[in-house]
Structures are given as structure tokens and as C-alpha cells.
Design a protein around this nucleic acid. Structure first.
Length: 666
RNA sequence: UGGCCUAUGGUGUAACUGGCAACACAUUGGUUUUUGGUACCAAAGAGUCUAGGUUCGAUCCCUAGUGGGCCAACCA
């Protein structure tokens, strides 16, 4: 197989460069470092996909490291959920590790740093420290404890560790530079006292290391080669390196690899929020049923909704990796799940909004079991039998008493196919007192060969199985609910994001098991929800099918709008465009461009052209095109004026021969 | 009154580090079809934020401007 040379993203470029500069391939090592304080969401899958994807690409180990340095927020429940979600996505970590595993090493290094005069104990209030820290635009000032003696620092720090102080009394900070333009370098905090129970270390510790001190050193201990994180950590890099370089002095023999932190832009999805804190609020306020509510952008939510690991991995691949802020349209995610399910999901029939259809010339007591293909995309999927009888349900939207011939479905007097069954013809309707259609009467023919425009799905009323179908709409009505300074994201919650439908499904579905995915033909993809029981089927609508009919429908109302004729671009614009590349293209194309410009020039007025006389000297191509166009205008009777003469004479002095030649021609 | 990052069709990402701006989604036509699905074919859509500079040649390198983002938690 010829490996297709896929273009590399900027991180892969960095790795390739390191490799060519002598980094041995077997030294490559990555990590995914979640804090166990919430559930993983679709945004995390980007980070997961990048690090684990790199691991797969280079056959390098990827550690799963729980960044568990804040016992106030972290729980075992989240650890378990995160592991389950990553496994479900199909990734394997080399080692399951915890930052808390390194508490003792970190502590010893911190003591070394104190001994080297690189860290000190500060005993002020957090307010006082914030004061001294300055602002992004104003430098900070040194605090009163900054020059404590090493011995005092050592003593205080040990007593902090021993639990002699309350929270907030003392902290340990690195001694860097209170005037540094990067605020993170203004003597950042390394340790704080926290008398909390930790989900792994219990009550062993009452001082806990901060992120910056822990994260880079954990990377270093694990000998991670490339530490990838999102853009907001860019300012942390200076500190990451500062700590790393100092610790390297203590451990370079046993730990020779110095990790590199590199940052990429995180994923944003339209109509979605990605903040753990805000997702937690949706759960706590009961807006959704839990972290795994099918409307949630969490991995567990997507899983329950019916998304496949494959579809999510493809999505992440397509999203790409770069450094600029981005908003991905949800339609890409939907495309990815349809793409996957189209190939794999068995087709079945279900009617969500039923109306009874009676085939008057079909015997009342007759029933037939007709063969139905399970998946036209998969020849190995086989077929099943579905029952047919005189009375079936069809979708209410599939019938109109009369309609234009754009309507391919059932109407009175015309024919349509019942999928996998017969061709029927609409004869008449029965309505109740309110004029609501209660029955559609039709006749059938066994000639199934003939061509008809439409095909309907159906379920035999006698054999139909009741099922609950949950149809979801986006959770937020705003494209970026997160991004309004003046409004809370909760204001944009869509009140109608869940619709519960009593539906009829074909009997083959009675034994459908939780998690199984189907295509309800002509409707969309559905999976069996966790709430389903042997007595009550429950389906989630994962995503609808693409529906080009739905797009046609709203048209009649807007028909009156004057048809905007395909606006042709003004000739002068096209000329500018041709000109821009003029000097870069091969001669043959140049001639073609010139011919085109000559033709277009006929449609150009002097007023259009005049502004181009001021084109920057550098833009020779545009000037040539302008010159050619000017030639046409002059030929057609345009009189010479000062502007024209100045433009031509300036061109005559140019270095570019083409331009000079065109100018001479005038 | 600062520092850092960033700017390419509607969206996202490319362009082998300077050589006719490509791919995917979305859009619009068409063909096939017992799913108005799928598949296939085609079209349209940017000349790369602006102004300078270097160069035979700039999306790419340099400078300045402008727009967007991040940075002042004993959070990660």
C-alpha cells in the first residue's frame, strides 16, 4: 500500500523536525492529563485524539495521567468515567498514572529549590499578594517575605507539610521576578495548605502542589517528549521551562529527556458549550437528566445518543489541528455519524406520526411475511421478514389529498410504493367531525415492477410494536451561548430540546438491546436508550437523514421574491484578479489572460479604471493589467489626461519589461 | 497602559518551508436508486486582513498597523 502523504499538522512538523535533529524515535512519549473533576466532553476528544493519535502514528506510549492536585474538586467517580470514555473511544494508554504519585518527589525537589534560594515561604494574605502582583500592564513589587533566610524557609515549609499551619497561613512560591511582563513568572505559588481528604492519598498530605509546579515535573518524571495542551497554557510555557530547567539540574542523570510543551487551539462547536463548570450547572439545575443526557456534548452523552467511537474519531481528524481560534459547525459532526451509521446500521421501519391506511382490496384476514433487506450498503447483512396486512400505519406527512407533482408521496388518485411490499393507489379519505383525516383508503396491485416516484415506509397495525422515541433538538438556541458578556448562557437554553413520541415500530425490534443502532428508513438513525426495558422499548434519535425534501418545502412562501440573477462580477474586478497573478504565470497563460483582459476591458469605464492608476509600484501584474485595459479605453476614444500620462510615464521607467512593453504600445 | 498567540472560500484545515491556492463539510445542479437516504458526476465560492519591504517571483520571510484571542484563582 502506498502510504498517502497526508499533510502534517504543525505539531507533527515539530516532531518530524526533532526526529531529524537527532531525537530517537523510541524516545517519543505523550500523555493525556485530565483533572478528574468532571466528565470528558467532545472538546477533550480533540486533545485525546492528538496525543493518542500521535502515539498510534509513531508507535509511542501515551500515558493517562490524572492531574489530581486539588482534592477539593476531584472524585473517584470522575476517574472511572474518564477511563471508561477513553476506552470507549478505542484508545489504549501505556500507563495509568496520577500526579499524586509524584507528591514526594515534588516535595523533595521543592526543598532543593528552597536550598538553592529559588523558592520561599510567603506568609501574607492572598489579597496582599494579589496587590503586589500588579496587573498585566503594571509590574508587581516584591513582598516582605521574599528574602527570608533559607533556614527559615526550610523550617516553615517542613512545618507546613507537617500540618502545623491552617489553610491560608503560608504558601511556598518560586522566586523568579515580580516585575516580569508575564504575570505567571511573578513568583508563582508552588504549594498551598489544604486540609482535605484526597481520593487517592487520603490524609497523607496537607500541602498540595499547584498546577504549574506539578504538571511540567510530572511530564519530566514520565519522560514525556512532547507535552501537548491547549492555547490558554501558552503563557505558562515560560514557567514550565523555568521549573523544568531547575529540576533538570537535580535529576538529569536519571531523567535525561526535557519535555517540550506545545499548544494548539481547542475545539469549539457551534450551539454547544464546552466548559465543565457550565455543563455541571446544566446537570445540577436539572436542565438535563445527567452527565450522560443524550443532549449533552459529553462523551457519555454522545455515546448514549448513539454516536459511535469511529464517528467521533473521524470528526476529530477532519477538524484538524492549528493555533487559531475556531468554531466548528455541528453539521460536520452530524456528517461523521451519518457516514458511519449509513454503512453499519440495519434498516428497519418505524412510524412516528401514524395515520391508518386501509388497503380495501386486500383480504381482511390475510397476512404475509415479506422479505426485507437489512442493509443495502452491506451485502453480508442479510434480510429479515416483516408482516404485511390490510391495515398499516404510514407517516401523516406522507399523505396529502392533493399536491403538486413535486410531492412524491401518496395523494388521491396516484400511486406510490410501500417499501418492500406493494404499490398502492390513493382512493379516498375518512375524516372525523373536525375534518381531521382518520383513515386513508387505497387499493393495491401486485405488480411491483412498475416505476413509481415515491416509496413510503409503513408498519402493519396488527403487528406494530409500541415504542417511545425521544427526539432531540439542540440544547441551545444560540450559536455561541457562551460568548455573550451581557447574557448568561442559561438564557439560551432551548426549552424544546426534547420531544417524546409514541411511535410504532416493526415487530423485529422487540428484542432490540440497549445501545443497538438502527436506521428507521426515511427518518434517521436511532438507538435503544439505556432506559429501555423488556416491556417498553425506548429509542433515541441520534441524527436525521439528510433531507433534501425538507429544504424544498418552505419555498412556496418565498416564491415571490425577485430571483436574484447570478450576479456577474464586474469586469474590472476580474481584470484585477487576472493582473495579480499575471507576472507569475507561464507565458501561454499570460497570453490567455491578456486576451481575456482585452475582451473584458470593453466593459470597463474610465471611472472604474482610474483608481487603479495608484496601484503600488510593487504590484506589477495589476499595473500591467491596468495598462492593457487603458489601451482599450484609449482606442475606444478615451482622451488622455494628466492621470493617464503620469501612469504611463511611470510605467515606462519600470524594471519590469512586460510593463514597459505594454506602456510603450500606448 | 505591558507580554504572548493568531489572521487563507460560509466553516475548518492544507499548500512538500518562496513557484498557476488544494481537501473536507456546507451550498447548488444532474445521474442512479424499492429510503427525497447512499453512491457517482458537476458547478459555484477565496486570490490569502491592510500598508510597506526583501525577491525575477511572497499565503509563506521582515516591519508597522488593524481585527480576534489569552494572561492579574492558595483552579487545572
Amino acid at each position: 500500500m502506498s502510504e498517502e502523504t497526508k499533510s502534517l499538522n504543525f505539531i507533527e512538523h515539530i516532531i518530524e523536525e526533532d526526529l531529524t535533529n537527532g531525537l530517537s524515535k523510541d524516545k517519543l512519549r505523550f500523555r493525556f492529563p485530565p483533572e478528574p473533576n468532571g466528565y470528558l466532553h467532545i472538546g477533550h476528544t480533540k486533545a485525546i485524539g492528538i496525543s493518542f493519535g500521535l502515539g498510534e502514528k509513531y508507535n509511542a506510549p501515551v500515558n493517562l495521567r490524572f492531574d489530581d492536585t486539588n482534592p477539593a474538586k476531584e472524585e473517584q467517580e470522575y476517574v472511572d468515567a474518564i477511563k471508561r470514555d477513553i476506552k470507549w473511544l478505542g484508545y489504549e494508554w501505556a500507563n495509568e498514572l496520577y500526579s499524586s504519585d509524584y507528591f514526594i518527589t515534588l516535595y523533595n525537589w521543592a526543598v532543593q529549590l528552597i536550598k538553592d534560594g529559588k523558592a520561599y515561604v510567603d506568609s501574607q494574605s492572598s489579597e496582599a499578594m494579589a496587590q503586589q502582583k500588579g496587573t498585566p500592564t503594571q509590574p508587581g513589587v516584591d513582598g516582605p517575605y521574599r528574602n527570608r533566610s533559607i533556614d527559615e524557609n526550610l523550617d516553615l515549609f517542613e512545618r507546613m507539610k507537617n500540618g502545623e499551619f491552617d489553610e491560608g497561613e503560608h504558601i511556598l512560591r518560586a522566586k523568579i521576578d515580580m516585575q516580569h511582563p508575564n504575570m505567571l513568572m511573578r513568583d508563582p505559588i508552588m504549594y498551598r495548605v489544604l486540609k482535605k481528604h484526597h481520593h487517592r492519598t487520603g490524609n497523607d498530605w496537607c500541602i498540595y502542589p499547584m498546577y504549574d509546579w506539578t504538571h511540567g515535573e510530572s511530564d519530566y518524571i514520565e519522560q514525556i517528549s512532547h507535552s501537548l495542551c491547549s492555547l490558554e497554557f501558552k503563557p505558562h510555557r515560560a514557567l514550565y521551562d523555568w521549573f523544568k530547567e531547575h529540576v533538570y539540574e537535580y535529576a538529569s542523570e536519571s531523567l535525561p529527556m526535557q519535555p517540550k510543551q506545545r499548544e494548539f487551539a481547542r475545539l469549539n462547536l457551534s450551539y454547544t458549550i464546552m466548559s465543565k463548570r457550565k455543563l455541571l450547572k446544566l446537570v445540577q439545575d436539572g436542565v438535563v437528566s445527567g452527565w450522560d443526557d443524550p443532549r449533552m456534548p459529553t462523551i457519555s452523552g454522545l455515546r448514549r445518543r448513539g454516536y459511535t467511537p469511529n464517528s467521533i474519531r473521524h470528526f476529530i481528524e477532519r477538524v484538524g489541528v492549528a493555533k487559531r481560534e475556531n468554531v466548528i459547525d455541528v453539521s460536520l459532526l452530524e456528517f461523521c455519524i451519518r457516514e458511519d451509521l449509513n454503512k453499519t446500521a440495519p434498516r428497519v421501519m418505524a412510524v412516528l406520526d401514524p395515520v391508518k391506511l386501509i388497503i380495501t382490496n386486500y383480504p381482511e384476514d390475510k397476512e404475509e411475511w415479506l422479505e426485507a433487506e437489512n442493509n443495502p450498503e452491506d451485502s453480508t447483512a442479510g434480510s429479515r421478514e416483516i408482516p404485511f396486512s390490510r391495515e398499516v400505519y404510514i407517516e401523516r406527512a406522507d399523505f396529502k389529498e392533493e399536491a403538486s407533482n413535486k410531492f412524491f408521496r401518496l395523494k388521491l388518485g396516484s400511486e406510490v410504493r410501500l417499501k418492500n411490499a406493494y404499490i398502492i393507489k390513493g382512493e379516498n379519505v375518512v375524516k372525523n367531525a373536525e375534518g381531521h383525516i382518520t383513515e386513508i383508503h387505497c387499493t393495491y396491485t401486485t405488480d411491483t415492477e412498475k416505476k413509481v416516484k415515491g416509496t413510503l415506509h409503513w408498519v402493519s397495525t396488527k403487528h406494530a410494536v409500541k415504542a417511545e422515541v425521544r427526539e432531540y433538538d439542540r440544547l441551545f438556541i444560540d450559536e455561541a451561548p457562551d460568548s455573550h458578556q451581557d447574557k448568561d448562557f442559561m438564557e439560551f437554553v432551548n426549552p424544546n430540546s426534547l420531544k417524546i413520541i409514541d411511535a410504532f415500530v416493526e415487530p423485529s425490534l422487540v428484542n432490540a438491546k440497549i445501545g443497538e443502532r438502527f436506521q428507521f428508513q426515511r427518518l434517521g438513525y436511532f438507538n435503544v436508550d439505556d432506559d429501555a426495558t423488556p416491556e417498553q422499548l425506548v429509542f433515541n434519535k441520534t441524527v436525521g437523514l439528510r433531507d433534501s425534501w425538507a429544504k424544498l418545502k418552505p419555498k412556496p412562501q418565498q416564491q415571490n421574491k425577485p430571483q436574484q440573477p447570478q450576479q456577474k462580477r464586474p469586469a474590472i474586478e476580474v481584470i484585477k484578479q487576472l493582473g495579480k497573478k499575471y507576472t507569475n504565470v507561464p507565458e501561454a497563460k499570460q497570453e490567455k489572460s491578456k486576451a481575456e483582459i482585452l475582451k473584458l476591458a470593453e466593459a470597463v469605464s474610465y471611472d472604474d479604471l482610474q483608481p487603479l492608476f495608484n496601484t503600488a509600484a510593487k504590484k506589477v501584474g495589476t499595473r500591467i493589467a491596468t495598462m492593457i485595459t487603458l489601451g482599450v479605453l484609449l482606442k475606444n476614444g478615451q482622451e488622455r489626461n494628466d492621470d493617464i500620462n503620469a501612469f504611463i510615464s511611470k510605467a515606462l521607467d519600470d524594471k519590469n519589461e512586460l510593463l514597459v512593453a505594454e506602456a510603450k504600445a500606448l
